[in-house]
């Protein structure tokens, strides 16, 4: 079984991943919908920007975040002058790092499932007196919900595994920013840390497997529903 410190690490990881999904789900839905339905040359640029963390080395993403959110960074110093606090090296920084790297998976999942919704249903809805917003909430969103959940599950799993950006922007502070991957890295460098590594690795594999299965199942459900 897990030791007290390890349990703390797992719980913190879940908190960080959970918050990262919570803060990104609404913007994820909006951008996923925009990328599926908006036909404008500017879309490609925006889409590339959102997808960037998927292909960038996470350490580089972390460095960019540090540059933005660090004490002397433009956002970090503005935050400090308003609230008096800091973002870098806090649990909030973990959440931000996890949200940024998980975001492309979320947006892409939602975009694909919005693309699967028959546009003619939206046309009919509008001809029945429902505006763009109401049509989105009553037709598009419910029909793409499995994709939203699948995207959220994948980005949750990705957030749990986030290491590179986290270590740069949030560091390795026990109880605050030491998530599963950071803890594994720490244990690997400590003498006698191997059993702890094994336990945390087992937890990681189990969570990732469950998340992937849930995402696949939801994807299949969506396809069945669209073809029905």
């Amino acid at each position: 079984m897990l030791t007290g410190a390890e349990t703390e690490v797992v719980l913190l990881s879940f908190q960080v991943a959970g918050w990262s999904v919570l803060v990104s789900v609404v913007p994820g839905i909006l951008l996923g919908w925009l990328f599926a339905r908006w036909h404008n040359p500017a879309r490609a640029l925006l889409q590339g920007l959102v997808m960037l963390p998927l292909v960038l080395p996470p350490v580089v993403t972390g460095y960019v975040l540090l540059w933005l959110l660090g004490r002397s960074g433009p956002l970090g110093s503005a935050w400090h002058s308003v609230t008096g606090g800091h973002i870098a090296y806090t649990t909030a920084a973990c959440v931000i790092a996890a949200a940024i790297v998980g975001f492309p998976l979320m947006v892409e999942g939602i975009r694909l499932s919005v693309l699967g919704v028959d546009r003619r249903l939206e046309d009919v809805s509008r001809s029945l007196g429902r505006g763009r917003g109401a049509t989105f909430l009553r037709v598009t969103l419910p029909l793409s919900l499995p994709g939203v959940v699948a995207g959220a599950v994948l980005s949750f799993a990705r957030a749990l595994g986030e290491f590179g950006a986290t270590i740069v922007i949030a560091g390795n502070i026990e109880g605050q920013t030491r998530t599963i991957p950071v803890a594994v890295y720490t244990l690997l460098n400590a003498p006698g840390g191997e059993p702890g590594v094994m336990r945390l690795a087992g937890v990681s594999v189990a969570i990732a497997l469950v998340a992937l299965l849930v995402a696949f199942w939801l994807g299949a459900r969506q396809r069945r529903r669209v073809s029905a």
Binding site: D123, V124, S125, S127, L128, G129, R130, A134
Partner: peptide, 30 residues
């Protein structure tokens, strides 16, 4: 805009909302 024209569309395929019941479809319009 289409939603304020009060011109209801019926197409070749029925295009019922698949996530709603028959009653839900009938009661869909504002």
């Amino acid at each position: 805009p289409p939603e304020r024209r009060k011109c209801a569309l019926v197409t070749q395929e029925p295009l019922l909302f698949p996530h709603l019941s028959t009653r839900g479809n009938l009661a869909y319009a504002s």
